[in-house]
Design a protein around this nucleic acid. Sequence first.
DNA 1: TTGACAGTTGAACACATGTTCAACCATTAT
DNA 2: ATAATGGTTGAACATGTGTTCAACTGTCAA
Lengths: 122, 122
Amino acid sequence: MRKKETSDVESSCCSVIHEDVVAEVRKKMPDETVLLDLADLFKVFGDSTRVRILCALLRAEMCVCDIAALLGMSKSAISHQLRTLRQTRLVKYRREGKVVYYSLEDEHVGTIFDQGLVHVSE
Amino acid sequence: MRKKETSDVESSCCSVIHEDVVAEVRKKMPDETVLLDLADLFKVFGDSTRVRILCALLRAEMCVCDIAALLGMSKSAISHQLRTLRQTRLVKYRREGKVVYYSLEDEHVGTIFDQGLVHVSE
DNA sequence: TTGACAGTTGAACACATGTTCAACCATTAT
DNA sequence: ATAATGGTTGAACATGTGTTCAACTGTCAA
């Protein structure tokens, strides 16, 4: 008969097998906040709608209406996502009459994009 | 008095202002499946636990126990995330007795990581 | 002033996702 | 065999997140 009361008391920690390795890696780890920012940045890239928007803006400056038509989505949905992209400083915008044009903030987007494509296409 | 019944019929589409731009961009857009894969890849990078794991493995091959201790989390939580990383082919593992050692699958992780850091540090 | 149109926004909803818990498998030592 | 230990897994839970809906702002034209 199997033991039924194993259940680790390991919650939040456990025995360290290689203390030296852990200590060494801990020293080399970037600041906690840097890693959080990094995860937040990639989180923005981690949605297909936002990826498609960025991919489109990589080719041309576009207004909300056009992006919505291109992706077959509502202006509202696009606008919500553009807000996220604005807050992450990935896109910038300019107003011309009633129309708001969006474009990429800098060239980092392209390079990050390309690196991702390299991995995706094995 | 304000109009109350505006409510777009725009659901899923709307008037296109610059047909030529949209058509041009549409031609240049990568395959839908490629963009989905790309988003899925970045989604994996979009969690601080996974980012920290990858960052640790960037420095050394480590077992689940050590990673858990390093990050102050349970083995279960780490194991779940390692599963995700395995499925995305970002990490590989080898068994040595009772211990399972994880390491990075290839060097793409490092380059993608670095590009992200460039943007984060403005 | 009024209406039309581009775009934004907040609340609501449904769905995705990370951690915990408990049980389990795999390997080794007794 | 049995127990101990490293690791995995599925269900449950709480939280986060993308889209919709409806209302709103801003700009322009009549």
